[in-house]
Each structure stands twice: as structure tokens, then as C-alpha cells.
């Protein structure tokens, strides 16, 4: 029983990271109906840039710089890869361009930071805290708090500020938003900036818990997609619940079955959800007007 509780606690931290990346998918999907297939690479770049910066400054000082970097990287992806494809209304186009940008980023990272995984110095004590017999790493707590904080911040921005409302309006009806004087192109660019920023943030949050390297993003990005589908691409609550489900299922599979298989449940859940409720557990199915 204690082992199970321990696994659940570790699963929660992992799940929140998935939720955070999945949240990034939702941001761009809402405004433009597109996804960045390089979301995992945005995370990886954030973590590696953070690693380089941490050599010169404290972790806390590095955080805002990484966020800025993430935003810029998102803008780059949108301008080079997504914008031209949106103009020609080509789904094939943006899928292919975001994938090719992803492999370019990965390759560049390999050449800059090398092929090997590197440990990321932890800003918090690495000794676990005992709590009712369950060991929790301080960094795991930071992951949960940090992920919730940034999601909450984005949500508050969307609800309270006029610019945030413009973002929501764009995701509701892009043409009508344009009629309100909202530059919807800018809103989409902005959503990519936000999306890559959250991914970069997720990168520096998870880096101290795992190893950092050019390949760290691929699997995380994929599982986060599963989470976004499981929770529903248009439900904020959905990604958190979806992330927690997947995180816990994975840590338990890793322990009770085999660590080799721990990446399998993500896909199985993804296929199951698509087969049973394609709009996701919390998603609203939208009726398209003909």
C-alpha cells in the first residue's frame, strides 16, 4: 500500500509536467486549430538553454530568461512554419513544417550540447522529505506548484485582461474577432509564444529530476499529446486530470510490470479514448455548422 502511495506521489509530479506541455498544445489549437509537433523540442531547448545559463547565475534568475527564450522560439516556429501554412489553409503544410523544425532543433541541440545526457543541478535540496512514510522530493513539489502557477497565470490573463479576452475571442470565432479590430494573426503568434514558453518552463522544471539532453523532448511531447487528447483539446481541467491519470498509470506500470513498458500505456490510453470518446474525457464535442 505504501509503495502504491509512493508511486502515486511520483506520478503526480510527472503528470503535472505532461499537463503543462499539453496545456501548450491547447493554447495554439484554440487560436489557430494547429499544433506544434515540436512542442517536446521546445521543452528540450528550454532545459538545455537553462542548463547553460545556470552555469553563470542562480536557478531563479535563469527562469525568466528561459521564459523569454521560449517565447522567442515559439514566435520563430509560428512565423517560419505555421503562418504560411495557415495562409494556404494546408493542414499537411503545418504538420510537415513543425515536424521539420522539430528535427532541425533536435539536431542543432545535439551539435551544440552533445549527444550525452547531462545532469541538471537541482536548486532545491535533493534529500527527500518524509511525509506519512512517503518520500517526496522538494523538486517534485516545485514542479507541481510551478506548473499550476503558470497555468493559473495564463488563465487569469485570459479572463481579466482585454488582451486575454481577445485571445479567447479569436479562438471562438477568428473572423468575428478580426471585425472587433483584433489582429488575429498577432494573437496566433502570441499563442505560439505562450505555448513554447510554457514548454520551456516545463523543461527547466523537470530537468533537475531527470537528465537533460537533446532527446529528452520527443517522448514527453508525444505523451503530452496523449494527455491533451485524453483530457480533451479544449478543456483546461481535462489536461490536469489527463496528466495525472497518465503520470500515475506510468509510474505504476513501470513498477509492477517493467520499466521497459512504461511508455506503452500512454498510447493505449490514447487509442482507447479516441475509440470511445474522441472529444476527450472532459472535452465538449463541437457541432460544425455546414
Amino acid at each position: 500500500m505504501e509503495i502504491l502511495a509512493q508511486l502515486i506521489v511520483s506520478g503526480i509530479a510527472l503528470g503535472m509536467i505532461y499537463a503543462l506541455i499539453a496545456f501548450g498544445y491547447q493554447l495554439t489549437f484554440a487560436t489557430s486549430g494547429t499544433l506544434n509537433f515540436g512542442q517536446g523540442e521546445a521543452l528540450m531547448l528550454g532545459a538545455l538553454v537553462g542548463l547553460t545559463l545556470v552555469g553563470h547565475m542562480s536557478y531563479w534568475l535563469m527562469l525568466p530568461l528561459v521564459l523569454v527564450f521560449g517565447a522567442l522560439q515559439g514566435i520563430f516556429v509560428e512565423r517560419v512554419g505555421v503562418l504560411p501554412a495557415i495562409k494556404t489553409k494546408s493542414e499537411f503544410g503545418w504538420i510537415m513544417t513543425t515536424i521539420s523544425l522539430a528535427i532541425i532543433f533536435k539536431n542543432v541541440a545535439e551539435n551544440v550540447w552533445g549527444h550525452d545526457d547531462i545532469t541538471f543541478p537541482s536548486p532545491l535540496p535533493t534529500a527527500p522529505i518524509q511525509f506519512l512514510g512517503i518520500r517526496v522530493l522538494p523538486m517534485e513539489i516545485l514542479v507541481v506548484v510551478g506548473a499550476l502557477a503558470i497555468m493559473l497565470a495564463v488563465e487569469m490573463f485570459n479572463r481579466k485582461s482585454i488582451y486575454g479576452k481577445a485571445v479567447v475571442a479569436t479562438s471562438n470565432d477568428r473572423d468575428a474577432a478580426g471585425l472587433m479590430g483584433i489582429n488575429t494573426g498577432m494573437v496566433i503568434t502570441f499563442s505560439y509564444a505562450l505555448s513554447s514558453m510554457t514548454a520551456a518552463f516545463a523543461g527547466v522544471l523537470i530537468a533537475p529530476l531527470t537528465l537533460t539532453g537533446s532527446t529528452m523532448g520527443v517522448v514527453l511531447g508525444l505523451k503530452a499529446f496523449s494527455v491533451a487528447i485524453i483530457g480533451g483539446l479544449n478543456s483546461g481541467m481535462g489536461v490536469i486530470v489527463g496528466g495525472l491519470i497518465l503520470g500515475i498509470v506510468e509510474t505504476t506500470t513501470g513498477y509492477y510490470v517493467s520499466t521497459g513498458y512504461k511508455d506503452v500505456p500512454g498510447l493505449v490510453l490514447l487509442l482507447l479514448v479516441l475509440a470511445i470518446k474522441p472529444s476527450g474525457l472532459f472535452g465538449k464535442s463541437v457541432i460544425k455548422k455546414v
Binding site: 486549430g33 494547429t34 499544433l35 509537433f37 493542414e91 504538420i95 520527443v218 517522448v219 508525444l222 499529446f225 496523449s226 487528447i229 511508455d263 506503452v264 500512454g266 498510447l267 490514447l270 487509442l271 482507447l272 479516441l274 475509440a275 474522441p278 472529444s279
Partner: peptide
């Protein structure tokens, strides 16, 4: 069967995940 039930980029993502698995 599951991936093509809905329109959108689902097949791409599902097949990508499939490749890893």
C-alpha cells in the same frame, strides 16, 4: 479505426506515438 474517427491531426500524432511504441 480510432485515429481516423475525428478530423484533424490525430492520425499524425497517433502514428507518431505508434512508431515509438
Amino acid at each position: 479505426l480510432p485515429a481516423l474517427r475525428v478530423n484533424g491531426p490525430y492520425l499524425a500524432m497517433v502514428t507518431l506515438a505508434f512508431g515509438t511504441i
